[in-house]
Simulated scan of single mutants.
Amino acid sequence: MAVYTDVSDAEAGALMRALGLGELTALRGIEGGIENTNYFATTDQGEWVLTLFERLNHAQLPFYLHLMKHLAQHGVPVPEPQAKADGAPVAAGEDDILHTVCGKPAAVVNRLRGKSELQPGAAHCAAVGDMLARAHLAARDYPLRQPNLRGLTWWNETVPVVLPHLDDAQSALIRTELAYQNHIAAGSAYAALPRGAIHADLFRDNVMFEGTREQPVLSGFFDFYFAGVDTWLFDLAVALNDWAVDLPSGRADTARTRAMLAAYTAVRPLTDAERRLLPAMLRAGALRFWISRLWDFHLPREASMLKPHDPTHFERVLRARVADPLLP
């Protein structure tokens, strides 16, 4: 992720000791992303990731961190937030897995093994589909609730902000699609969609693999800080829009799409309403990330390692989903 806040070795080392994770031996900022400050932290006991939250406050973070803890304890390979030792002081706004560094809320999780696969094949997509379905089922009894903060309400608020940066064709597309998504969300079929805690940002760079390209082993999901309660179908659509599209054109890749859908539905079959609305949710997922990338690109924040994503990619994905809908 981008680095907005510089953390000293002394500050990071003090937190590692407080968590019983050993003595800090190395600290390195992580490049990429746009939301939080992240560092790789190495201690004499292992490898960790230190995150400082730049937009979310202490009151907002328990949903995300305890969701990760819940999934990890239910066998889903996700980074597990590290807890303070029994009896350790807990400052105002903190809890056992929510800490404070440089005056900002922070968390420390174990560093996942493996590496991201930025050119996935069908086997990678199948592994993601399988584990995403397992994660949805594992979170059914997760007790905390928080809406998807980058959902329809945010789209309606943010489109007027980015419109001045669009040409006439782009403006027409984004206005038309937003109206369509408001119409879909008001329908009875949408109300019937199963829902729960979702990842909402399961892109290629948020999954780790070990094994070989022919036989990949999914070693973990990470970056849950866009998670919220929303439809499971939207989460699946977001994943399909990244894992199963041709990046230069934005068009769907048939083999990878089939692999992910088959693996997902083998664990959790889609309902009739989900099958009917899958084309609409694929469009919704493309719209969501087109809007957020426009916002980040045209209204950026300062960061020492910030590289905003190209917003036109998801414009292409949206146009492709409208022109060639995936039939249920």
Rank of each mutant, 00 (worst) to 15 (best):
V238W: 00
R258V: 05
P120A: 07
H58P: 01
A72P: 08
R258W: 12
A244C: 15
F234G: 00
L50D: 03
E315V: 03
E23V: 12
W155T: 00
G196Y: 13
W295T: 09
R275F: 02
Y64D: 06
P89D: 11
A83Q: 13
A263G: 10
N182L: 02
T271N: 04
L247Q: 11
T265S: 10
G103C: 13
T100M: 08
T51A: 05
N57F: 07
L202G: 01
Q215A: 12
L294P: 03
A262Y: 14
G20E: 10
V159W: 00
H136Y: 11
V101Q: 03
A185H: 14
P81Y: 03
G87E: 09
D235G: 04
A186Y: 00
F314E: 00
P164I: 09
D96N: 10
A10H: 08
G114W: 06
L65V: 06
L278C: 06
L236C: 09
I198E: 02
R195P: 05
T5A: 09
G114S: 11
P248C: 09
A189V: 03
H298N: 12
P62M: 11
A179E: 12
V322W: 08
M260D: 10
P269M: 07
N182Y: 01
M68V: 05
R17L: 10
D95K: 06
A200S: 15
A92S: 14
A91L: 13
D296F: 05
R55Q: 14
A106S: 12
L132Q: 15
M16D: 04
L261I: 15
L163Q: 13
E177Q: 12
A91E: 14
F314W: 07
A91I: 06
M305P: 01
V109P: 01
D272E: 15
V108P: 00
V317I: 06
A26R: 11
R17G: 02
Y142W: 15
